[in-house]
């Protein structure tokens, strides 16, 4: 699936699109994408395992299958740019360079977690990495992200904001409110709709009058692109154009066509789709397998990939160990951080 522009107003952006999903990536880029995507995959598999062991509680939304989206987008921004997302946030944090140990320890509710155990899977932040959460209420990253973008305009920076939300959130009223203000004030924000086809158990077709979500900005004059979110190189190429647009011109919508392999959360029996559908996606569209083949074709030796596989496995083992060894927060922590003293 090629990057496809959804609105007329974005034509100029399309015209500058590089052919075949972007310039030929360097060996280093391919290796980096592979390492980052694999880190997310292995992290989430381990998180699922720890959940099954009762070490992680509550809601835990795994990102497996969607790795190409955040890795491709992250490659298109700078460390000064800002990222905000909703509750399926582990992948975003890892792609941004947050420490897997701190993320995993937050999942286990330990003091070594990014929120010292007080936030959990859906509520983590890193000011240092310009990651602004981790929000449990569907749709909120759109307007909160708009505020981050407003601050960039106010302070006259050239930074952009990536505001991620899902296909389900796209139907929230505040998303439309945010689109309106973003374009009204030409704020530097990229709305990334991760369309994994299902809002919990409700498919896009069952929930959305306009199923092509990249077109949702049309009435506001916001250009949109529908992008194959299972191919990291396509994502990166689209993100390059969109980020440039957001930095120089104003908001844009990127609809990332993707798929989650696991349930909406750990407690989802996933009766709304067939086993065959999931298996087919895994077999034919897996973003990591796809990149691996591409790397082999580019002449990267299997030995190199094996080294990355092992390193990743070790990092995740280390994170899991840390997340279990880190103590629970001191009871006195119950009353801290309610207000800034």
């Amino acid at each position: 699936m090629r990057a496809r522009m959804a609105t007329k107003s974005a034509k100029s952006v399309r015209d500058t699109a590089p052919p075949n999903g972007g310039a030929e990536p360097t060996r280093d880029e391919l290796v980096r994408y592979y390492r980052d995507m694999l880190l997310i995959r292995r992290f989430e598999e381990r998180a699922g395992q720890l959940y099954g062991m009762g070490l992680i509680g509550g809601f835990c939304h795994l990102y497996i299958g969607q790795e190409a989206v955040v890795v491709g987008l992250q490659a298109a921004i700078t460390p000064d740019d800002m990222v905000i997302t909703s509750y399926r946030d582990h992948g975003h944090m890892l792609a941004i360079g947050m420490d897997p140990k701190g993320v995993m320890a937050e999942l286990t509710g330990r003091v070594g977690g990014y929120s010292r155990g007080k936030g959990g899977s859906m509520h983590m932040f890193s000011r240092e990495k310009n990651f602004f959460g981790g929000h449990g209420i569907v749709g909120t990253p759109s307007s909160l992200g708009l505020g981050l973008a407003f601050a960039q305009r106010y302070r006259e920076t050239k930074n952009v904001v990536l505001a991620y939300f899902g296909d389900g959130a796209a139907n929230q009223g505040q998303v439309a409110e945010s689109f309106n203000m973003a374009q009204l004030w030409k704020l530097p924000i990229l709305f990334v709709i991760e369309n994994n086809q299902y809002a919990m158990g409700t498919s896009v077709a069952r929930s959305s009058a306009q199923t092509q979500l990249s077109k949702r900005g049309e009435s506001f004059g916001i250009p949109g692109m529908q992008v194959d979110g299972m191919d990291v190189l396509t994502v990166k190429a689209a993100a390059d154009q969109a980020v440039a647009h957001a930095r120089d011109t104003g908001p844009m919508i990127l609809e990332m066509m993707t798929y989650r392999y696991r349930g909406h959360s750990m407690s989802d029996p996933a009766k709304y789709r067939t086993r065959e559908e999931v298996d087919k996606m895994k077999a034919e569209r897996d973003p990591i397998d796809h990149l691996r083949e591409r790397m082999m074709r580019a002449g990267i030796e299997e030995a190199t990939l094996k080294i990355i596989d092992r390193e990743t496995k070790d990092r995740i083992a280390e994170a899991a160990e840390f997340a279990q060894a880190s103590p629970e927060p001191d009871p006195a922590q119950l009353y801290t951080d309610v207000l800034v003293a």
Binding site: M82, I84, F132, T140, S142, S143, L144, G145, L146, G147, L148, A149, F150, A151, Q152, Y154, G173, Q174, E177, S178, N180, M181
Partner: peptide, 14 residues
Amino acid sequence: YGFAGLGVGAAYAG
């Protein structure tokens, strides 16, 4: 809803 969220986001940014 939108501008309240915008305000909170701007406060996140300082």
